[in-house]
């Protein structure tokens, strides 16, 4: 079957979301989803259409044991405690970040615990300076912060805005890694890590993204990214990484 045919994609998506695809047909459909954007779009549209029907279903309070079991299963032991502690600090910094000219706010989860349960490294990118008046016209940029969460092996990073950033449609946010200066050498310029979404999570996958990196920065660029390979617009958010010894 040609799943890119819109009518077929739409009919299958409707039956899938309505719960009518069963057994092997259901599994086959789910296996196709990652590769077929037409199917995914159709499924999301049908979820938008049909899920509101569930608003009228009588809620059922789960017994307390359910949450206890969930907690046990997601509990990675000490790593969770570290992540929770990081978030308490993050909450503090978020309150702080809006105040005055704090150039950058950096935060790291202390990776005292080795092994597979290592928590990600969390870097908060705060406003670099008060938003420049020319950053795309009056009120085009709302101050907010980004969080970058780097996997313990340094191979992948997820960036997320803490509050959605509104930028003009013809602009984009580009993420940069600022290499650590080495004594006696001309400092390297920033390395682009690609564009990140102003309104959702972006997964950045680059080998060893954080090797020899001092800080992360987000700059406002033309849509499609900097034409020169170096930041051309104002740097809006900066976050320093902890020194490797502290990670």
């Amino acid at each position: 079957m040609d799943y890119s045919r819109p009518e077929l994609a739409d009919r299958l998506a409707a039956e899938y979301v309505a719960g009518l695809l069963r057994g092997p047909a259901r599994r086959r459909f789910e296996a196709l989803l990652p590769a077929h954007a037409t199917l995914r779009t159709a499924v999301r549209a049908w979820q938008d259409r049909l899920m509101p029907l569930t608003a009228s279903v009588a809620p059922q309070q789960p017994s307390p044991a359910v949450w206890q079991q969930i907690e046990q299963r997601i509990d990675g032991g000490t790593s969770t405690t570290a992540a929770a502690a990081a978030w308490r600090r993050l909450a503090f910094w978020r309150g702080f970040a809006g105040v005055a000219s704090v150039a950058a706010v950096a935060l790291a989860v202390a990776l005292a615990v080795p092994g597979p349960a290592q928590p990600p490294l969390v870097v908060v990118l705060g406003p670099a300076t008060p938003p420049p008046a020319d950053a795309g016209g009056g009120g085009a940029v709302v101050p907010a912060s980004f969080v970058a969460s780097v996997s313990p092996d340094g191979r992948a990073m997820v960036t997320k805005p803490i509050a959605n950033v509104r930028i003009e449609p013809n602009r984009a946010l580009e993420l940069w890694a600022l290499p650590r200066p080495r004594p006696g050498q001309t400092p390297e310029g920033p390395r682009s890590l690609g564009l990140v979404k102003p309104d959702g999570a972006t997964v950045v996958q680059r080998g060893r993204v954080l090797d020899d990196v001092d800080a992360l920065a987000l700059s406002l660029e033309p849509s499609g990214g900097s034409p020169t390979g170096k930041p051309t617009g104002p740097v809006l958010y900066v976050g320093k990484l902890p020194a490797p010894a502290e990670r």
């Binding site: 059922q60 309070q61 949450w67 992540a83």
Partner: peptide, 25 residues
């Protein structure tokens, strides 16, 4: 979004607000 970054307290709040609806469904 915060649960996605490992925030357990946010996840607990999310559970409190949505679990009765999901169990109903």
């Amino acid at each position: 979004a915060r649960a996605g970054l490992g925030d357990r307290a946010a996840f607990a709040t999310l559970y409190e607000r949505t679990s009765a609806h999901l169990l109903g469904v």
